[in-house]
Amino acid sequence: MVETVDLGEFGDDFRRNPHPVYARLRERGPVHRVRLPEEDHVTWLVVGHAEARAALADPRLAKDASRMGRTFPDDRAIGRHLLVSDPPQHTRLRSLVSRAFTVRRVEELRPRIQEITDDLLDAMLPHGRADLVESLAYPLPLTVICELLGVPELDRTEFRKLSSEAVAPTSAQAERDAFVRLGEYLTELIEDKRCAGPSGDLLSDLIRTTAQDGDRLSPGELRGMAFVLLIAGHETTVNLISNAVHALLTHPDQLAALRADMTLLDGAVEETLRYEGPVENATYRFAAEPLEIAGVPVAPGEAVMIGLTAAGRDAERFPAPDGFDIRRDNRGHLAFGHGIHYCLGAPLARLEARTAIRSLVERAPSLALDGPPGEWIPGMLMRGMRSLPLRWTPSSDPRA
């Protein structure tokens, strides 16, 4: 009989720093049966890099839970979307959204992203101390994705609350309520844009996107696509920015290297993605047929969780994995996934993170931690801090 590891037994230490636990599991093997903290739920957990990479691209691991008779809080409220679909439906949905959400469109956002960043820092830096999450890491990607999709500014505070509850719920009922309210809001937003006609934002373009064969996104698919783009388009980037700044400030030699040579900026972002990526584990997959992962049998219908954070610290792929080294060859990290479900918003997240980190480091040369970080986000999905207190000398801002 396979042993079930109860991750809840590790207590709050596991939430703050899961890496030692994942390392001990990896020593025993790349795949384990685990019980999730604060949940009466058992799943397979993949903690090895090679095994995680293979599992992410394995077509026998389905994302559509309904094929196995399972349901989740967002199934009815939100509907079908990229994170819960398999080919051929996934292929069709991704093809349609890719027609509107292009690399060129992301690149065109560069000046606006810089402008938003500068405005946020103009408001933040004269005070000499602030919470990075509240002052920069959260409002930057939230503003960008809401502007990109055409979400009215007055709606963004409420949207933030619902989004946070959806990705890191405080209770099962609160999670269900958040998905219902998000579904209702997105339905109304889409209908308003449909009636208003073309306006140049991404959601309006998605409403009118048509494939060569005349195929279009249905109302339910539009709602699901808006949900994925809004949630994944900012929640993960919040953590990427705050995790990167935290890693740099707790590794002063790496921060000094970056200040001396800004060509290392890409390396700093990619190393953060490997070392403390914004998503701890990929969303569930389910065995659509009997299979083995690294020799471990997985029965049809069983849930599989793929550890992106764990894979990033696998010494077989990344030597001295617990070190933070912005010059490291970190190619092959899995922070944005792998295979057909590779993150659609990766170029936007990278652009926002590079802009935020460069601007903050250049404009606050005396930047330092102003105490310990706040609570780490609960659950097994997101990896980030609720707050990150910082301080600096206000007069050091070269733009002041």
Rank of each mutant, 00 (worst) to 15 (best):
T309V: 12
I207F: 06
C146P: 02
L132M: 01
G200R: 11
L182C: 05
E184Q: 15
M305A: 11
S85R: 01
S396Y: 09
A311Y: 01
E316Q: 14
L344W: 00
N281D: 05
H41R: 15
E280F: 07
L217E: 05
R176Q: 15
V21I: 13
E165K: 04
G295I: 00
I326G: 10
T237Q: 04
D119G: 15
P394L: 06
A55H: 01
E375R: 14
E184Y: 14
T71E: 11
R26T: 11
A303S: 13
R399K: 14
L360C: 07
S85V: 00
P398S: 08
G337E: 04
R327T: 09
A100L: 11
L360H: 00
P198L: 02
T355A: 07
E184P: 14
G220I: 09
A65M: 11
R331W: 06
R181D: 07
A282W: 14
V228D: 01
R70Y: 12
Y138M: 14
L7V: 00
V228N: 04
C146W: 00
G69V: 12
E165I: 03
V144L: 06
I357H: 03
D12E: 13
R358G: 10
R67F: 10
E147M: 13
G337A: 02
E27N: 12
G323C: 12
F10R: 02
P373A: 01
S199A: 15
L109A: 06
L109K: 10
R60L: 05
E175K: 13
E362P: 06
T263Y: 08
T143H: 06
T263W: 09
V167M: 08
A52R: 02
E9R: 15
D6A: 04
M262Y: 15
P373F: 02
E147T: 13
W44M: 11
V133F: 04
G214Q: 03
S98T: 04
D131E: 11
P139I: 06
R156E: 04
R28P: 00
R383T: 02
R26H: 07
M1D: 12
D64I: 12
D253G: 13
L83P: 10
E276Q: 07
R53A: 12
E27M: 12
E107A: 12
M380V: 05
V151W: 02
G379N: 07
Y342C: 06
R317G: 08
M68N: 14
A196Q: 10
D329V: 00
L109M: 12
P278E: 00
A364E: 00
D131T: 09
